Amino acid sequence: MEPIIHSKGEETPEDHGEGKNRRRMKASSNRLVSELRDILKTVVIAFVIMLLLNMFVFNLSMVKGQSMMPTLEGYERLFVDKLVYNLGHPKRGDVVVLKDPSIGTDKKSFLVKRVVGVPGDTVEVRKHTLFVNGKLQDEPYTDVKIEGDDVPAVKLGEKEYYVMGDNRHAGRSKDSRFFGSVQEEDIVGRADFVFWPISKIRGL
């Protein structure tokens, strides 16, 4: 029997099958690369959006220490609205996150406190109780009198706020009794609610 000789460019059945497999694998690889590219693009866009929201709209913060007990406990997570004070100003009773005024500007440290005095107010701690504009304040969010020394009357200027922790036990809260009034520009945002742990989700 004479050998079968294939002309140049003619494929054997085996060659034809291998070519199909190669094309199929290449198409599959291209789809995988395209899908990975789409996923990566989605992740990058989501990251950028979250970064912008975190910078300008909201922040997620964790409570450290006991200065806001009984309102807040250590390691609870807070949702902080950063946009609200672009549209208005802090009010008495707001729980706010602010830059720690007692450290240098080159360090980043934040405190959670309650606003007890706003611009124009006169704040005073007399006989272990809080007076604002000469009126005794009803503070249902704290469970003790203000321990420690009384504080002479302080008149707040424009964009100045007086903040205190809800834990009024002596030495439990580093606040305006320690570092004085704070500037509005140092208030990062308003803490609106606790979102973690789930069992303690609540508004503030």
Rank of each mutant, 00 (worst) to 15 (best):
Glu158Gln: 13
Val80Phe: 08
Arg114Phe: 04
His89Gln: 15
Val123Gly: 05
Glu2Thr: 13
Val182Glu: 05
Phe56His: 01
Ser28Gln: 15
Val115Lys: 06
Met50Cys: 12
Thr42Asn: 12
Met62Trp: 08
Phe195Gly: 10
Lys107Met: 14
His128Tyr: 04
Met25Glu: 14
Val115Cys: 07
Asp81His: 07
Asn86Arg: 14
Asp15His: 13
Trp196Gln: 10
Val44Pro: 01
His6Arg: 15
Arg23Trp: 15
Lys99Arg: 15
Pro90Trp: 02
Leu72Cys: 01
Lys113Pro: 03
Gln66Ser: 13
Phe58Arg: 08
Lys174Val: 13
Met50Gln: 07
Glu139Ser: 01
Pro101Ile: 02
Val132Pro: 07
Val97Gln: 09
Lys108Ser: 12
Thr129Tyr: 05
Gly104Asp: 10
Ser34Pro: 05
Pro70Phe: 02
Asp121Gly: 06
Arg177Asn: 01
Asp186Asn: 12
Val80Cys: 07
Glu160Tyr: 02
Ser28Asp: 15
Leu130Met: 07
Lys127Glu: 15
Ser67Leu: 03
Ser109Cys: 06
Lys127Pro: 12
Ile198Val: 15
Val194Ser: 03
Leu78Pro: 08
Gly117Trp: 09
Thr42Ile: 10
Asp38Leu: 11
Met69Asp: 07
Asp149Gln: 14
Lys135Met: 10
Pro90Glu: 02
Pro119Cys: 03
Glu139Pro: 03
Arg92Ile: 07
Val44Arg: 01
Ala191Ser: 02
Leu52Ile: 15
Arg168Phe: 04
Tyr162His: 04
Ile146His: 00
Leu40Trp: 13
Asp81Cys: 04
Gly180Lys: 01
Phe178His: 11
Ser28Pro: 11
Val33Pro: 10
Lys127Gln: 15
Ser61Glu: 15
Phe79Ala: 08
Arg22Met: 12
Val43Gln: 02
Asp100Gly: 07
Asp175Arg: 01
Ile45Pro: 03
Ala191Gln: 00
Phe178Arg: 07
Val57Glu: 06
Ser29Glu: 08
Glu139His: 02
Lys107Leu: 14
Asp175Cys: 02
Arg202Ala: 02
Arg23Leu: 14
Arg92Leu: 01
Arg22Glu: 13
Arg202Gly: 04
Lys135Glu: 12
Val57Asn: 05
Leu98Met: 11
Pro13Ala: 02
Arg126Tyr: 12
Val123Asn: 05
Gly93Ala: 01
Asn167Met: 00
Met69Ala: 10
Asp121Cys: 06
Phe178Lys: 09
Leu87Gln: 06
Arg77Met: 11
Phe178Ala: 08
Gly171Lys: 04
Thr129Cys: 09
Arg24Phe: 12
Val48Leu: 08
Ile198His: 13
Gly93Trp: 00
Phe195Ala: 08
Thr71Phe: 00
Tyr141Gly: 01
